Simulated scan of single mutants.
Amino acid sequence: MARAVLETNIPGTNPIRGKVRDIYDLGDNLIIVATDRISAFDVIMKSGIPYKGAVLAQISKFWFEFFADEIENHFITDDISQYPAPFCDHGDQLEGRSMMVKKARVMPVECIIRGYITGSGWKSYQKDGEICGRKLPAGLQQCEKLPRPLFTPTTKAEIGEHDMDITIDKTVELIGEEAAEYIERKSLNIFEKAGEFALEKGIILADTKFEWGLYDGQIILVDEVLTPDSSRFWPADKYEVGRDQESFDKQFVRNYLESINFDKSGAGIELPEDVISKTSDKYIECYDRLTGLKFPK
């Protein structure tokens, strides 16, 4: 198994380190690096998942290019030779897992689109028949496809904090009515088209998260897009209503942490090799299936 890249270190620079990404501020642009760090229950583990960061970066690039004619996004290039110094001299750290992007002012709202009733949505529905204040038909089963996709915005939480569901009215209050309508409409549109494409590849897109930003007075798509970290992808041939589904993400990690009664707070832990290996394989399989290419290890 290859070594996991837990962080990047470019001499003379001082990146901002998030849960997964190292972000280098170039002034007008950013260089975003997807490391192999993995978080579960908002806790960053001590172990990384080899190739995970490269998979996230390459899947995001795939979708940015897929939707390039329909929506502006922040992607500029992932060609290391076009990066400014000193970054262009550190392909050993950046190749395949980084991209230079436009530096947008990120909106304080995350756009959650739910196509199936699962996760926190299923728990909420069991409790009061609603998801984020939206009343749903009675009798829905776990992981059942919703009558239509739901836009359920949340706040954008800091590291270590949890996103909080907000109403459409609160979204309007935060970013204005016109912007709120735009990001809802575009998020739903991208979700539906990506879901149709993924299904052709044997993958169900159950839900996802989009982020938007302002750049030169225009709303553009930013952050990662339709990756296993920001979405639930299920193998269509194993889908069955009424139970939890297999997924192309960190589910092996979550299941292991649940099995040892991890307290979901404090410091992360070292993960067993088999959990690391199986998780890495799932990320790579997701890339292979979605793009139709073979992930270059």
Rank of each mutant, 00 (worst) to 15 (best):
A104S: 06
E273R: 12
D36A: 00
G176C: 05
N14F: 08
E177I: 08
G160H: 10
R289D: 15
K186A: 00
M99L: 06
K186D: 13
Y182E: 09
G195V: 13
E181S: 11
K127D: 15
D207R: 04
S231K: 10
W63I: 14
E110Y: 03
E130T: 15
M1S: 04
K102M: 05
Q142T: 14
G266Y: 15
G27Q: 13
S259R: 06
Y83D: 15
M1Y: 02
F262L: 10
A157K: 10
P86L: 12
F248S: 13
A138F: 02
R105Q: 02
P50F: 01
K46Y: 13
V275W: 02
M99P: 06
R97N: 09
A267H: 14
G176F: 01
F67K: 07
K250N: 04
R105H: 03
L205F: 10
A236F: 09
R21D: 00
L214F: 11
T171D: 08
E184H: 01
E285A: 01
Q58S: 15
E192F: 04
A104Y: 01
S265H: 06
I204H: 11
E95K: 09
A4G: 03
V5I: 15
P149D: 12
E110R: 02
Y83L: 14
I59H: 10
T35S: 13
G12V: 06
A68L: 08
L188I: 13
G217I: 14
I183Q: 05
D165M: 04
I76A: 11
T118P: 07
F87H: 10
I190C: 10
R21P: 05
K250V: 01
A54I: 01
K186L: 00
K186Q: 12
I76M: 14
E65S: 10
I117V: 14
E65Y: 03
I166R: 04
I71P: 00
I16Y: 09
R21V: 02
Y256C: 08
T154C: 12
E65K: 11
I38V: 15
F151I: 11
R232W: 07
D244Y: 07
P147M: 01
V20K: 09
A180Q: 05
N29S: 10
V55A: 13
